[in-house]
Deep mutational scan, measured.
Amino acid sequence: LTVEVTLDGRRIELHGLSEEAHEILRHALERNADDKEIKKILEELRK
């Protein structure tokens, strides 16, 4: 799955996400998580 997010003013596409990762990010974006929170989530998903 692919998600497009804006971090530090740049639009980035995240490819190859699992369903779980996609859901976690989608929920964070829906509640307008800040860049710091999104980065933390991405860091966790990379593990």
Rank of each mutant, 00 (worst) to 15 (best):
H15Y: 14
E43C: 15
K40G: 09
E19T: 11
G16I: 05
L45G: 01
H15C: 11
G16H: 10
L7E: 02
D34C: 06
V5G: 02
G16K: 04
R46Q: 13
L45I: 14
N32F: 11
R10N: 10
G16E: 05
E37H: 05
K36C: 08
A28R: 02
I41C: 01
R31G: 06
E13G: 02
K47S: 12
E23P: 01
E20D: 09
G9H: 03
R26L: 11
R46M: 15
A28Y: 06
L17N: 01
H15S: 12
D35I: 09
T2P: 04
K40L: 12
D8M: 04
E23G: 10
R10A: 08
E30L: 15
L29V: 07
E44Y: 15
I38D: 00
I41L: 09
V5H: 01
V3A: 07
R10L: 13
H27F: 08
E20S: 10
H15V: 12
L25A: 00
L17P: 00
I12S: 02
L25S: 00
L1R: 10
V3S: 04
E20V: 09
G16V: 05
L29M: 10
R11K: 11
E19Q: 13
K39V: 09
S18A: 04
I24Q: 09
H27T: 12
E19M: 13
E4M: 11
V3F: 15
A33I: 05
E30V: 08
E44A: 14
I12L: 08
N32R: 12
I38Q: 00
E37Y: 07
H15P: 04
L17I: 06
R46W: 15
T6H: 08
I41F: 04
E43N: 10
R46K: 12
T6F: 09
K39N: 07
T6K: 04
H15I: 09
E44S: 12
E30T: 10
H22Y: 15
E30A: 15
L1H: 10
H27W: 09
L17C: 07
V5W: 01
E30R: 13
T2R: 10
R46T: 13
R46I: 14
L7C: 10
L25Q: 00
D34N: 11
L42I: 14
E4Y: 11
K36A: 14
D35W: 11
I12G: 01
D34W: 05
L42N: 00
H27D: 09
H27V: 10
E4S: 11
E20H: 10
L17Q: 01
L42F: 04
R11H: 07
E43T: 09
A28P: 00
K47W: 15
D8W: 01
D8I: 03
R11M: 06
H22S: 11
A33T: 05
R46D: 09
E13W: 14
H22Q: 09
A33S: 05
R26F: 05
R11I: 13
I41D: 00
H15L: 08
R46G: 14
L42E: 00
V3K: 03
R11P: 05
D35T: 10
E23W: 15
E37K: 04
K36G: 12
R10F: 14
L25D: 00
A21N: 06
E23S: 14
K40W: 13
K40A: 13
I41M: 06
G16D: 10
L42R: 00
A28I: 05
N32T: 05
A21L: 07
K36E: 14
K47D: 09
N32K: 12
S18C: 04
K36M: 13
E4A: 08
E37G: 03
I41Q: 00
L17A: 01
S18T: 10
R46C: 14
R46P: 05
N32G: 12
H15A: 09
E43Y: 12
H15K: 11
R10D: 06
E4N: 06
E30C: 14
E23Q: 13
K47R: 13
L42P: 00
L45R: 01
A33N: 03
V3D: 03
K39A: 10
L14R: 00
K47H: 13
T2L: 05
L1I: 12
L29E: 02
V5S: 02
L45E: 01
D34A: 09
L7N: 02
R26A: 06
L14Q: 01
L25N: 00
R46S: 10
L45K: 00
K40F: 11
E4K: 07
I12M: 08
K47P: 08
I38H: 00
T6C: 14
L7Q: 03
G9S: 03
E44F: 15
L25C: 02
E23R: 15
S18D: 08
L1V: 09
L45V: 06
L29W: 09
K36T: 13
T2S: 12
A21F: 10
D35Q: 10
L42S: 00
G9C: 05
G9K: 03
R26I: 12
L17S: 01
T6A: 04
E13V: 15
E44V: 12
S18Y: 02
I38F: 05
I41P: 00
E19G: 07
L42W: 05
T2Y: 08
A33G: 04
G9L: 02
L17R: 01
K47I: 15
D8Q: 07
I12V: 11
I38W: 04
G9T: 03
E30S: 14
K47A: 13
T6E: 08
R46L: 15
N32I: 05
H22L: 14
L1E: 05
D35C: 05
L29N: 02
K36H: 13
I12Y: 13
V3M: 15
E13M: 14
I12W: 11
D34G: 11
T2K: 10
D8P: 02
L7G: 02
E4I: 15
R11L: 11
E13S: 12
A21T: 05
I24V: 09
D34M: 06
E43L: 15
R31D: 04
I24Y: 10
E44D: 11
L7K: 02
E43A: 13
L17Y: 04
A21M: 12
E23C: 12
I38T: 01
E20G: 08
E4R: 07
V3L: 14
L7D: 02
T2F: 09
I38N: 00
L1C: 04
E13A: 08
E43G: 10
E20F: 11
E44C: 10
L7I: 13
L17V: 05
D35V: 09
L25H: 00
V5K: 01
E20M: 10
I12C: 10
I41R: 00
I38R: 00
D35P: 09
E13Q: 13
A33W: 06
A28C: 04
E19C: 11
L7F: 04
D35F: 08
E4L: 13
K36Q: 12
R31M: 08
L29S: 02
L29R: 04
